[in-house]
Amino acid sequence: MRTLEEVQATLQIAKLKEEDLQTTIHCLSFGEHVSSADYCLMELDDNLCKQIEGGQSLVIRGEKDERAVLCSGDKTYDLKIADTSNLLLFVPGCQTADQLPNNLDSSHVVHAQIWGFCNSYWELRKQRPKLKKLKKLLMENPYEGPTIVGQEEITESRYTMFDLLEMIQASEAEIKDNLKAIHACEIDGYWRLLDFDYEVKLLGHVTQLVDSESWSFNKVPLQNCLEELAPLEPKEMIEHCLNCYGHRYFENDKILYSLYEDKVCRALALLLLQNAVKFNLKEFQDVWQQSVPDGMSTSLDQLKSVALVDRTSRPETICLLRVEDLPEDTQERFNHLFTLREKWTEDDITPYIQDLCGEKQSTGALLTKYARCSVQNGVKVFNSRRPVAT
Rank of each mutant, 00 (worst) to 15 (best):
E5C: 00
A9D: 10
I13S: 04
I13W: 04
L21P: 00
T23P: 01
C27I: 06
V34D: 02
A37M: 06
L41G: 12
M42P: 06
D45G: 07
G55W: 11
G55I: 11
Q56V: 05
S57A: 13
K64N: 11
L70E: 04
S72G: 09
K75E: 13
D78C: 09
L88N: 01
F90R: 13
P92H: 07
Q95N: 03
C118R: 15
S120L: 03
Y121G: 02
E123P: 00
E123K: 12
K130P: 00
K132L: 05
M139V: 05
E144Y: 11
G145Q: 03
E153D: 10
E156V: 08
M161I: 13
E166C: 15
A170I: 06
A184H: 03
A184I: 03
G189K: 04
R192P: 00
D195S: 02
Y198V: 00
E199H: 06
S212C: 08
P221R: 03
L232Y: 14
E233C: 12
I238Y: 01
I238N: 02
E239L: 13
N243K: 12
E251T: 07
V264W: 09
V264I: 14
L273P: 02
N275M: 03
N275F: 12
A276Q: 13
N280L: 01
W288M: 03
Q289A: 08
Q289H: 07
D294T: 10
M296L: 15
S299E: 04
Q302N: 10
L321C: 06
R322M: 10
R322Y: 01
D325Q: 11
L326C: 06
L326M: 10
T330G: 01
R333F: 02
L337F: 04
L340M: 11
D348R: 05
T350D: 09
P351C: 06
Y352R: 01
D355M: 08
L367R: 04
Y370C: 00
Q376I: 07
G378M: 05
A389Y: 09
